[in-house]
Structure formats: C-alpha cells, structure tokens
C-alpha cells in the first residue's frame, strides 16, 4: 500500500526539503516508522524519549484525527494521505491573570 505523508515546513530540513514522502505502509505506525527510518533526524521531533508520539504532534489520515480513529494502529490504504500537523500554541506568562 503506497501512502503519502505530508511534511510541515519546519520539519522539511529533516526530509531533504521534501514536502511529501511516499512510502509503503499498512498502518499509521508503520508509515511513521518507515518515514523515520528513512529520515532519522525526524525521530526526535516526532517522538518523546519513551517512544510515544509527542503531545504537540497531531496526525491526520485524510481529514481524520487518528486519536479519534484507532490511534497509530489506524489502517491506511492506497492513495491515503497522512498529514503531520504541529500543534500551534502559546500565551502570556501566567502572572497576566494573577495580577
């Protein structure tokens, strides 16, 4: 099964500047594992030290969040598109609302 993984701009330096990578996989876990095997520097940005996906990394299959599917065991098939979407968050120091 050939799936396409869309790489967000800040992670492209770790995929030889490719914006998408096509690879063989039957599940999301397999796709990400093949991706990080091909591009090893990507691993530290996607996975925490305990081997789990970082909390601020979201993964979508087509338009579905894998958290609401079968997580990284979500099956993928030909022409499915996996998107890695970095969580964008921020804010003021906490004293803002304490003062």
């Amino acid at each position: 099964m050939t799936v396409k993984v869309i790489i967000p701009t800040p992670l492209r330096p770790y995929t030889a500047n490719k914006d998408a990578v096509e690879l063989e996989a039957r599940t999301v876990a397999e796709a990400l594992s093949n991706l990080t095997a091909q591009h090893q520097d990507l691993r530290k940005h996607l996975y925490a030290d305990d081997g789990r996906l970082r909390s601020f990394v979201n993964v979508y299959v087509n338009d579905e969040d894998i958290r609401f599917l079968e997580k990284d065991q979500t099956p993928v098939g030909d022409s499915d598109v996996i998107s890695i979407v970095p969580s964008i968050a921020g804010g003021c120091p906490l004293r803002c609302i304490c003062s």
């Binding site: 338009d63 968050a89 921020g90 609302i97």
Partner: peptide
Amino acid sequence: GLESERNRFLIDPLDQLKAE
C-alpha cells in the same frame, strides 16, 4: 485553573489543516 483564553491560545489542528 490559571490558564484560559485570557493567557493561552491554541489553534485547532483541523482548522490549521484546512487552511494549509
């Protein structure tokens, strides 16, 4: 208890995916 929309923002990854 200390964090809210007054001092935190978060973009819905789905909004982000669509806009991208």
